[in-house]
Design a protein around this nucleic acid. Sequence first.
DNA 1: GTTTTTTTGTAACATATGTTACAATTTCGT
DNA 2: ACGAAATTGTAACATATGTTACAAAAAAAC
Lengths: 221, 221
Amino acid sequence: MFEKVQLCPVMRGVPLNELEILFKSMHFNIHQYDTNQMVIESGADCNSLMILIEGEVRGEMPDQAGKTVKIEDIAAPRPIAPAFLFGQNNKCPVNVIANIPTRVLFIPRNEFLKLLQQNTTILTNYLNIISSRSQFLSGKIKFLSFKTLREKIAQYIYELSGENLKTIFTGKSQEELAEFFGVARPSLSRTLKEMENEGILKTERKYITILDREKLSRLIS
Amino acid sequence: MFEKVQLCPVMRGVPLNELEILFKSMHFNIHQYDTNQMVIESGADCNSLMILIEGEVRGEMPDQAGKTVKIEDIAAPRPIAPAFLFGQNNKCPVNVIANIPTRVLFIPRNEFLKLLQQNTTILTNYLNIISSRSQFLSGKIKFLSFKTLREKIAQYIYELSGENLKTIFTGKSQEELAEFFGVARPSLSRTLKEMENEGILKTERKYITILDREKLSRLIS
DNA sequence: GTTTTTTTGTAACATATGTTACAATTTCGT
DNA sequence: ACGAAATTGTAACATATGTTACAAAAAAAC
């Protein structure tokens, strides 16, 4: 078991023998779940750090009408909802359901706090995980705050290209890019063509080439 | 000085005498800044936890054209950019500039790590701060992901009203609400009136009354 | 190499929101 | 109580994006 725990981002870098010692003096539980069994329900309190050590779960968001929308799949080994263990709101925002037979390690909040104080590696790991998440979300919001599609495209290219790269590889089809931008596919196609006609860029399947950096920047400023 | 440090969310709840002991065995700096002096420049490394202990600073985002947009004012006592001390990206995302004569306490990352391990209160405070921030950002993104204005309005009312409250107080004028939603003021006014004509809700200055919860939910689902 | 599937381009039209301008109403300051 | 300032309602029109449908092109499967 410790081999798998050790692979989890939270515990990464802690030698196996140290890990065993830490776990010996700590309360924790391991639960098993069958396919489609609920691991934690939306709205339930997150009192423990949950680490998926084996299997795969999905997060589903129940909407007002009671229907559900799948948010993401999480495969072992990874923590589940680490940002909801602390903070003002400890309610789990999604239903977490096992996709396949799954094992989850539960470490109660207080026990985990002790762990954080005993072991610098785990502390920095955890701080890095939730800080990175914040940073990721900040970036996402900055991106969403661009109103027009042209601005979003410009910003997207700017971030991928850095200061001097001329051609970027998106790794996404127009369909996927459109979904990423939150617009309809024909709208993206149209706008890309417009920008091409204006000599700003050129597209070629999953590659975009910048033709006029000056004009591109003006779209963002 | 410790009285002011103690008021900061990170140090809140730590008795004065303990605080003094902790600081005695720790490296830290205090810098003073005059009005309009730069505290930290966008892109600089955040190697230290920065705590504003006196004064007020503003965050300004420099855009591609070199112009700046003010993001927010931060008044003492509060940490500055706590989410960028750890994580993958330690570059400060904004220029931080003193609005008035200001004093900032710098605690190097490693020293702060020690502090976190020595003192449970500070550890939980810090975890709560950055976790809450994540949660806030998550909520913001969920909100931004609603496409139409009607959906945003419905979601907004839903969150403020809870399960059974009929009338909510927004505390914002239409102008401010429109900015919060990221739409033009006349658009908000128009849409609110449409929803009023459909018998969904009723507005009265800064109050919104739900007339038909059923219809309101259908907008979100 | 042909067929099938996926991806992209494009057009016509529908809809939502922005922009501007002004009138009506309410609140605030005195 | 009065006038000034802020807030809200509303209309006409501009623009951006969505929707649907289909054709063209490229990639993948066979």
